[in-house]
């Protein structure tokens, strides 16, 4: 099971369920996956994240849980496909290029957090 992956809608449902488990009144919000329409999520971490969502939601001093997904590497290189489309839907030419995107790191989300437990593996490990 360690190498399997979870469907994106299933990942989202799992997190919502984990937040509501035993305390349906607690609010839950997920940010950062809005642009993904189809994706497979690493199963090993999916379980750990579910556990963390449930753990925080179960705290009496927590009213709502936010789950934010952001690039860990703050500069990501993306392939860009520029397609010319003909009237019949075919493409007479496409250009493929790249663009680097700079992202803020996790510190932008951690202001005012009294305790931060970093459970991430070192970069290069999973």
């Amino acid at each position: 099971m360690r190498l399997m992956h979870t469907k994106l809608p299933e990942f989202i449902a799992k997190m919502k369920n984990a937040a509501k488990k035993g305390q349906p009144e607690k609010a839950f919000a997920l940010r950062g996956l809005e642009n993904l329409k189809s994706a497979k999520m690493q199963s090993l971490r999916t379980g750990r994240i579910e556990e963390a969502v449930a753990e925080l939601a179960s705290r009496p001093d927590v009213e709502r849980v936010e789950l934010i997904v952001m690039p860990r590497v703050p500069e990501t290189m993306h392939t860009v496909v520029i397609k010319g489309i003909a009237a019949d839907g075919s493409s007479p030419k496409a250009v493929v290029d790249v663009v680097n995107i700079l992202h803020p790191t996790e510190e932008v989300e951690l202001e005012n957090c009294r305790e931060v437990e970093d459970r991430r593996p070192a970069i290069g490990r999973h």
Binding site: P74, E75, N100, T105, V108
Partner: peptide, 25 residues
């Protein structure tokens, strides 16, 4: 990892070997 010659912490970015800076937010 082989990112560009950039350092980033939170909102702050210092790029192109320290010759351009930005607030990414």
């Amino acid at each position: 990892i082989p990112v560009h010659n950039v350092v980033i912490s939170g909102r702050a970015s210092n790029n192109n070997s320290a010759t351009e800076m930005m607030n990414i937010v």
